[in-house]
Each structure stands twice: as C-alpha cells, then as structure tokens.
Amino acid sequence: MAKILIVDDDEDFVSAVNLLLKSNGFDVAIANSRQEGMEIFDKDNPDLVLLDVMMDEPDDGFVMAQSLKKKAKNIPILMLTNVGQVTGMDFDKDSEMVPVDDFEQKPIMPNILLEKINQLLGK
C-alpha cells in the first residue's frame, strides 16, 4: 500500500483528500506545516508527497520541495496550490526553484487527483 504525505495548512482540504485517498486504498500521513512535514517525512518515508505552497511562510512549499529533493531525489512531489487564485501569482515547476514532479491548481477534481497520483507512483 503506497503511503502519501499531505503537507497543507488548509484543514478542510486535508480532511477531504485524506478521505479520498484512504477510500482508494492509500496509507495517509498528514502535516500542517513545513516543519511538521519534514519530521513526518524523515520518520515515515512516504512514497509520494502532496505539497501546498503558502503555509506559515508564503514560500514554505518551495523551500520544502527543495529540501525533499536534496534528501530523496526520487520521491515524487505533487504541488497543489490555489496561490494563483489568491495572489495572482503564476508559478510552475522548474528544476531549481520549484523542483516538483507535477504542479496543479486547487480546486482539483478527485478523479484527476487520483489519476495524477497514480501516474507519479508509476501505476
């Protein structure tokens, strides 16, 4: 069973995705901040990380993605954010500053999210 770490400070989003993933047979770990996310990552060795951008700091997601890729280059990261809607900012993945495997805007349809996750897990 693949283990997915959700790092996001939006509790409603986290509980909805948690429900979706569990009901589809995934094991789920949850963190609400970058620091907590790094601790759980070290402890639980997830197979994939769902990562928000703006948490305690506006760039927490980018910083965490950079740290994760240094630690475990092959762990897929799916960045999920509504930063574009909230701030008008336009980001995308790039190998240096946003080193994630895929970048999606929230809200995201459950089937698309599952499809992306399965794709990144190589299923």
Partner: peptide, 15 residues
Amino acid sequence: FPTAVKWQLAGAAKG
C-alpha cells in the same frame, strides 16, 4: 519582509 521569501517567490515565478 523576509528577504529570502521575496527572492524565493520571484525566483519561482514564471517569466
């Protein structure tokens, strides 16, 4: 405002 956050966001922004 934290300087690193500003630089990080500008570095990550598309353009």
